[in-house]
Simulated assay, not measured.
Amino acid sequence: MADASPSLRDSGAPVRVWDGPTRIVHWLLVALLVFSWWSADDYLTWHRWSGYAIIGLLVFRLYWGFAGGEASRFAHFVKGPRAVLAYARSLGRREPSTTVGHNPLGALSVLAILASVLVQVGTGLFVVDIDGFEGGPLSFMVSFETGRRMADIHELSFRVLQALVALHLAAIAFYAVWKRTNLVGGMVTGRRKLPGDPGLARAPLWRLAVGVVLAATAAWAVSKGFWL
């Protein structure tokens, strides 16, 4: 959940906040999670390949949280309890916050969703179906009983993820109605209206290249069961 930007009545000019890699990963993750949900029952081969792609996206986003543009770094938006509580007290006021990027509450949402997706793909690697014929790429490493427990956790974590996404959508609606702030537009264009340019640092292209290689390598290695 990105932070509120000034309302349309403000005269602040749109400035760049979110870099391209962050926005691309965000929307690809949305699309692949929906696709994985759709393919889970009848298209298991596609479901697996979607999972491999999600693993690559997660690896990249975690890497980008340390090496990416300033607004995308965890150190930029993850705050302590005091900052979270202080921001929560401001939600009842209609004036927007000028925090750049994710606000302290939004940061908790980002971390919770990332953790939930990590559990999803992590357990999916070891899942075994009820008949023992189908399984994740690393299911050969565990017993049938463990594989079934992983399947139960896989299902439960998806329900948790659904709840987190519903909360995320509710927050977007709250900002649109109460704060008169278009959060979705900022994640599409990368820009939002601010009183002034925050001068966020961008990541050099070589860091992007390293992240892409790491993500592709991780997805490929998992798809091969780490038998490189």
Rank of each mutant, 00 (worst) to 15 (best):
V17T: 03
G20H: 06
W27P: 05
H76I: 01
V59G: 10
S11W: 08
L29I: 12
A2N: 12
T99V: 14
P6C: 13
I55F: 14
A40F: 01
D129H: 01
G124Q: 12
A31C: 10
A31N: 05
G106L: 01
A83M: 03
W46F: 13
S139M: 08
G20F: 12
F35K: 09
P21S: 06
G12P: 07
H26F: 08
L58S: 04
R73W: 06
V15E: 02
D10K: 03
E134S: 12
P14D: 11
D41G: 11
A53V: 08
D42G: 14
L44F: 15
A115C: 07
E134R: 14
V25C: 15
D131G: 11
L33H: 07
N103S: 01
V119H: 04
N103W: 09
G106P: 02
F140I: 06
V142H: 09
F74C: 00
F144C: 02
D129V: 04
P137G: 09
L108M: 13
G136W: 13
D19E: 06
G101Y: 03
F35P: 00
E134N: 13
R48H: 14
V110G: 06
S5F: 11
Y63E: 05
L105S: 04
A2M: 12
G68D: 06
V121N: 00
G101R: 06
W38K: 14
P96F: 08
V30S: 00
W18M: 05
G92T: 13
A67S: 14
Y87Q: 01
L28Y: 00
M141E: 10
L29W: 02
V142W: 09
G106Y: 07
S5I: 04
I54G: 04
A71Y: 02
I54Y: 03
A75V: 11
F74W: 08
G69N: 15
T22P: 04
V142S: 07
Y52M: 15
V15L: 01
E95T: 13
I54P: 02
V59I: 12
T22F: 07
I55L: 15
L105K: 03
A67G: 06
L114Q: 04
V110A: 15
L118G: 07
W64M: 04
R89A: 15
L91C: 06
S72Q: 05
Y63P: 00
V117I: 15
E70G: 00
I130W: 15
G56T: 05
A4D: 14
A67C: 09
F77Y: 12
F133G: 06
A2C: 12
L32A: 08
R23Q: 10
H102L: 01
H47R: 10
A31M: 13
I54C: 03
L118P: 03
S7G: 09
A4S: 15
T123P: 07
A112R: 09
A88D: 03
W46T: 11
G135Y: 03
L62K: 06
S90T: 15
S36R: 12
A67R: 14
G101T: 05
V59Q: 09
G20I: 13
S7R: 10
A53W: 03
A107S: 03
L105D: 01
S90D: 09
